[in-house]
């Protein structure tokens, strides 16, 4: 039951969770915006990949940076037109971003059609390797690597750069930060765009091994919120640990019993965690906007 193969699968599931949750953690975790359109930014990323492959004949890897930029632009537009008016009204952001989610979904439905789309995986990434007697897909390993790399890059961005310092300053106290010459509007917009870009990037990466449809976002957003809530709002380390725990739980329980039971147990565990540790497993060092 606890074979190396099962653990490896858990790691692989966890890496996808991490990838999907990272953008949400940035937006929800650091800005306090509950972005229900996150799953749809991911969907836009998957569709952008499909479009670039089909009409521009680009390979999967080549599409990744383009898709990231597309995600940033979509996020920026959403932030500039809607979200920036709602920073002090967190409950309203739920409704507004939910509306945006429906809008994006139906726009893609009308523009690209409702049928499922096909995103190709490069031949060299579609094989599998045997590690210590356990099989694992090459592409799965690539996703694990990219997820970790993005996590590290994001940590560096937020904790080791001037931009990150400004973000944390604005989040802690926007008035004081502005008093020191930080343009809080710009910082918010850039952070939101970055989180959206990450969502789209995740969409591009999962597209070849999952399915691409206008409604795909809903399945990811639930998972992403679970990871963020368990890990602790605003904590990137917590994000990493909670994605790992949930991934391993899904793999082990799924193997021992079945996936439906695994989902039920995970939801129960998350409810218990929220009940007894509402701040999540890891407490963030960043103060939340009140």
């Amino acid at each position: 039951m606890f074979s190396f193969g099962t653990l490896l699968s858990g790691l692989s599931i966890g890496s996808i969770l991490l990838l999907v949750a990272l953008g949400l953690a940035i937006i929800y975790g650091t800005m306090g915006v509950i972005n229900l359109a996150h799953g749809d930014f991911l969907m836009i990323g998957a569709y952008a990949t499909w479009y670039l492959q089909k009409y521009w004949h680009m390979g999967l890897i080549a599409t990744l940076p383009v898709v990231f930029i597309v995600g940033c632009i979509v996020g920026l537009v959403v932030e500039k037109t809607v979200v920036r008016y709602l920073y002090r009204r967190p409950l309203d952001t739920i409704l507004a971003t939910w509306g945006i989610s429906i809008l994006l979904e139906e726009a893609v439905n009308l523009g690209a059609g409702s049928n499922l789309k096909y995103v190709q995986l490069p031949g060299m990434l579609s094989g599998d390797w045997v590690l210590f007697g356990a099989h694992v897909g090459v592409y799965r390993i690539l996703i694990i690597g990219i997820a970790l790399a993005l996590l590290i890059a994001t940590s560096v961005l937020f904790f080791r750069t001037d931009f990150g310092l400004k973000v944390r300053a604005v989040v802690s106290n926007p008035e004081t930060a502005e008093g020191h010459g930080v343009n809080s509007g710009l910082i918010y917009a850039a952070t939101f765009a970055y989180g959206s870009g990450l969502a789209a990037f995740a969409g591009a990466l999962v597209a070849p091994i999952k399915s691409v449809s206008p409604t795909m976002g809903i399945h990811y957003i639930v998972d992403a919120f679970l990871v963020v809530v368990v890990g602790g709002v605003g904590s990137l380390l917590g994000l990493f640990v909670s994605a790992g725990i949930i991934g391993e739980m899904e793999s082990i329980i799924g193997f021992a019993i079945d996936d439906t039971t695994a989902k039920v147990i995970i939801f129960l565990a998350v409810i218990a965690i929220i009940r007894f540790r509402p701040q999540g497993l890891f407490v963030s060092k960043v103060r939340q906007p009140s």
């Binding site: 699968s9 329980i253 193997f255």
Partner: peptide, 20 residues
């Protein structure tokens, strides 16, 4: 005999089961 939730998209554990 196994049932996955509607909309499920992560089959790693099922694939492990197929292998074993």
């Amino acid at each position: 005999e196994e049932y996955v939730p509607l909309g499920h998209s992560e089959f790693s554990s099922n694939i492990n089961k197929m292998r074993s």
